[in-house]
Design a protein around this nucleic acid. Structure first.
Lengths: 363, 363
DNA sequence: CAGAATGCTGTAAACGATTACAGAAGTGCA
DNA sequence: TGCACTTCTGTAATCGTTTACAGCATTCTG
């Protein structure tokens, strides 16, 4: 069906070798011949077969990204960071989503063999992703937010430190009873944030009690739902720290419906600092996560691993988070915050490339 | 570096053909031999080379998705729809993002040759995506939200109808001066929504005036920024229709800061019905877009095209949108709306599969 | 026991490209 | 004219698979 290099060669009355040379710009070729070949290629709508090419060159110039599932802005941001960085080095990015169970994960891993030069794996679970037997030994892999592994690069977000700092901040505002809405128990971010909360409570003068911890699942309605549980805690907490912004927003919605005022009656804080956090009522105090930096770093690492080959050394690194203080916790309403179209330097994270060249199909 | 079928064959003391037969479960193979081969494959961590395999089988069992850029929930949702549907048919999905200029788009198209069996292209611009010469003739392609093309399948969202219906609704509530915050001029959705707004205004008793139209770019801050322009319109509009939810939310934020009350002083409506729309203050009236249905339909179409081969017939289709009425426009506050964890049947769009199996790394 | 059928396995030709190597033609120089 | 270069082009091996075909034992059938 589709035209091959052989047909171009026949059309231009030369051998395939010459066609290949012209199309790759290597080796001396007579100007006339070159013109004839280019014309033939164009006329036939010839497109080189990437698979065949990379079979012999052993390079795909592509890196793969494996996601547990595509959900929300977080992933989009990470991928944008990866893509931007990869493109600078002339690499393509392919994303494979939704490996929710072990069999599917393995299938994805194996499908990647021979199609990518390296892999970035986003794995939110608490157990390390499957591997041995699913990838050639020594294949370049960078794990994002996964438990440290001796045989892979790994890049983490300081969930623990972010949660710790947030609790510290709430305590510094005078709060002694701080409730926590958690995320899924199998989710590593959620686990780390909970751990940060607990450690900070223990390390400070705040009340320590399991009754202050409410279950959630990172989705808006879980926050909405948590309202009831929280209202029934005795004695009342004065601050509520949700393990992510989505739940904090759900909670705000529930409070509004019941006429409960924030931050007057409760201080509320979230985690992630999603773009919308500064635009809701009241603007949400949160923990900023260096999302696109995460993607960028991961890409640099995997490219380095590809380049260095088998003598690459695996490293583990943790990227810092930053507190973003807004009205929802009652301290330091920053009037200049909302109108800023680009990320302002509240955190130490470089966002200089974010927000450029954006073009959307829809909101 | 990585082990091939040949080495497995050598290890198991058989020919490559037999190894292949075992691994693909075709052809009769002695039980002993099979066991020996499987053991060898496992011991050597053998993973078949997908590129080589698809070179000869002429099937990649993969469909590609080309995005202009990855941004926000819209894309994630579309991709989820695609992925879910593709997986049911045993296909993988690879996503390539960010082809912001023509050269990059071409490069992406060409890179896909030999790596995917079909393509879904999300193209937000107003001009048709480049093609001839970048793809083998007759290659299965489905265009999403692109101007109709005679040589491709194409699937659209009824932006025009959605905007039209929203204006109608606002008029039915008694509004006569309805302002509009537009999206990027090069964006097809934006253009269609604007057209819907204008037509509906013209077809009704509302005021028609260019001074009611404010420029925007689909981002939160553009809505925030639009506040000033809108306040300066004389006579004042009583309703504001933003071309997407993000801008509506930005505008709400600006109003709140200035003590302007919604919906008492202004009715506000958005477009997209992003998940957070129901959780903000006040809950946002919007137009629901059948996002994952879009992905699902696109996938079915491209799979059909792959199956049917050259005798496939190209079709164009438009998916309907649906009004979602909430408090921000002053009519019909729906108390049962927010707590719903799953999409409720306000629209005719099937969302039965949405919200299952979700697992996030972070909010 | 001949001949056919069956079960298992190996040989070799694809798939669509790249590239080392060799060969042909043309040029410069003695 | 002969020889060494250069410049251009073709032949064929190769990448890692799949699979048509053939070949060899064995078993079945009459």
């Amino acid at each position: 069906m589709s035209v091959t290099i052989r047909e171009v060669a026949r059309e231009a009355l030369v051998s395939v070798a010459t066609v290949s040379r012209v199309l790759n710009g290597k080796g001396p070729v007579h100007a006339d011949t070159e013109r004839r070949i280019r014309k033939a290629a164009k006329r036939l709508h010839y497109v080189p077969h990437g698979g065949a090419r990379s079979l012999i060159t052993r390079k795909t110039h592509t890196i793969g990204v494996l996601l547990p599932d595509l959900y929300g802005e977080f992933f989009s941001e990470v991928i944008r960071g990866i893509d931007l960085c990869a493109r600078r080095s002339g690499y393509h990015v392919v994303v494979s989503s939704s490996h929710s169970n072990r069999a599917e994960t393995e299938s994805m891993f194996r499908a990647m063999r021979g199609r990518v030069d390296g892999l970035i794996v986003l794995y939110p679970g608490t157990r390390p992703p499957v591997r041995k037997g699913n990838l050639p030994d020594g294949f370049p892999v960078v794990l994002l937010n996964a438990p440290g592994s001796r045989s892979f690069d790994s890049l983490n977000i300081d969930n623990f430190g972010g949660a710790f700092a947030m609790v510290r901040h709430l305590v510094s505002l005078g709060h002694r009873r701080i409730a926590f809405i958690g995320g899924p128990a199998q989710n590593r971010d959620a686990v780390e944030r909970l751990r940060g909360y607990r450690e900070a409570v223990r390390a400070s003068s705040a009340d320590e009690s399991r009754s202050l911890e409410v279950a959630g699942d990172f989705r808006e309605w879980a926050g909405y739902d948590a309202c009831r549980s929280i209202r029934s805690i005795r004695p009342h907490p004065s601050a509520i720290f949700a393990a992510n912004d989505a739940m904090a927003i759900g909670l705000l919605c529930a409070f509004r419906e019941r006429g409960i005022r924030v931050p007057e009656q409760y201080a509320i804080a979230g985690f992630d600092d999603i773009p919308i956090a500064r635009y809701i009522t009241p603007p949400l105090t949160s923990v900023r996560v260096p999302i696109s930096a995460l993607g960028e770093q991961a890409t640099l690492r995997v490219l380095k691993a590809i380049e260095e080959g088998p003598r690459h050394e695996w490293r583990e690194e943790t990227l810092p988070t930053a507190l973003v203080i807004r009205e929802s916790c009652g301290a330091g309403a920053r009037s200049e915050d909302p109108p800023a179209p680009r990320g302002r330097g509240l955190s130490s994270v470089s966002e200089s490339h974010v927000g450029k060249n954006r073009q959307r199909l829809s909101g």
